[in-house]
């Protein structure tokens, strides 16, 4: 699974962090998404898919 993010779209709700905290984090200064792992292991796939689904700004793209 290949993950890409668009920080310009992100609105910092942090739902991706709730869904997959080993893959997504938030910048200290403004809460904008930071990608920790652009090729997460299979056991993270469900959480990452969940993160992409609930992201209100459609800022997470997946290629499986």
């Amino acid at each position: 699974m290949k993950v890409t993010i668009e920080q310009d779209r992100c609105i910092g709700t942090g739902q991706c962090v709730l869904a997959a905290s080993s893959v997504f984090d938030q910048r200290d200064e403004d809460g904008i998404v930071v990608l920790l792992d652009d090729n997460p292991p299979a056991d993270q796939a469900d959480g990452v898919r969940r993160a992409a689904m609930v992201c209100p700004a459609l800022a997470i793209r997946l290629a499986e």
């Binding site: 910092g12 938030q26 809460g31 904008i32």
Partner: peptide, 15 residues
């Protein structure tokens, strides 16, 4: 909207 919202998002970060 984005300019102003981003000024107050940090305190609402999950951590």
């Amino acid at each position: 909207h984005s300019r102003l919202r981003r000024l107050v998002t940090a305190p609402f970060a999950v951590k």
